[in-house]
């Protein structure tokens, strides 16, 4: 079983998020980057499948500038066998089709049985890369995986639906599956893994990024200023207005 895991480096939830003066990107020098949360679960799912079958290969694949190699090493320390870094120091793609196309070019010769990706990235959050990549490579696709089970040449996936419902789907391999956070318990890298991470193969490819269908023009911080509304009128009018606000805006029922 040959498994690829897409891993993205994103700003940590506790990191400061200052913007550059042109307001179209973060000031990366002040951002603390970590591995995207749901990708960590995808990696764990792949490692567990390899361990259960006592055979196979887990290849971590990451798209991004040089700093991305930090999460690649982390994935190698946790047990991935080798890595592919799709290096984009300039013109980092923020368009999921452009990103998935770069992944497809890098992975098409590899014939993976499964591609795991996180449900969505914690920074841009489109949740599309894994699905588009599966489509580009002619694979079965499923999203929101809560559990997986390998059958002969097939994979059974438990998908999370709304309101606490689940769905089991069985698909033919190869398959690209995006994984929901919480589906397993990701491991910590062992010291042995940390010491061995640098010795593992890391293949860097440097494609040119094609046209993108979308780009970021301006980033705004949410406005958190308080607004005080004065309600004027007779007691009855004030009460009526207050009830309307409670019901429709604060939504007390």
């Amino acid at each position: 079983m040959k498994i690829a895991v897409l891993v993205k480096q994103v700003p940590g939830s506790e990191s400061p998020l200052p913007l550059v003066s042109s307001q179209d990107w973060l000031d990366e020098s002040q951002v603390a980057y970590i591995m995207n949360e749901s990708d960590n679960y995808g990696l764990e799912e792949a490692l567990q499948i390899r361990e259960k079958n006592n055979d196979g290969e887990v290849v971590v694949v990451s798209l991004g500038p040089d700093r991305t190699q930090k999460v690649i090493r982390e994935a190698l320390a946790k047990g991935a066998d080798r890595a592919i870094h799709i290096q984009t120091n300039e013109n980092y793609p923020t368009d999921p089709l452009a990103a998935a196309s770069l992944f497809a070019d890098a992975l098409k010769g590899e014939d993976f049985d499964i591609i795991f990706s996180g449900l969505q990235s914690d920074d841009l959050g489109y949740g599309q890369t894994g699905v588009i990549l599966g489509e580009l490579l002619g694979m079965s696709t499923a999203t929101l995986a809560m559990a997986t089970e390998i059958l002969d040449n097939k994979i059974k996936v438990k998908r999370e639906l709304e309101a606490g419902y689940f769905q089991w789907v069985t698909m033919s391999l190869p398959a690209s599956i995006s994984v929901q956070s919480g589906c397993n318990t990701p491991r910590y890298p062992s010291l042995k893994g940390i010491m061995g991470a640098k010795k593992k193969e890391l293949n860097v490819v440097t494609p040119s990024v094609g046209d993108q269908n979308q780009s970021i023009k301006k980033i705004y911080a949410p406005n958190t200023a308080k607004e005080t509304v004065m309600i004027k009128g007779s007691v009855d009018q004030v009460v009526e207005k207050l009830v309307t606000i409670f019901r429709n805006e604060i939504k007390i029922t």
Binding site: R73, A77, K198
Partner: peptide
Amino acid sequence: TDEHNMLIEMISDFA
């Protein structure tokens, strides 16, 4: 080294 930084980050997550 990179390994030291990884170790510290791992223990920090573990803690």
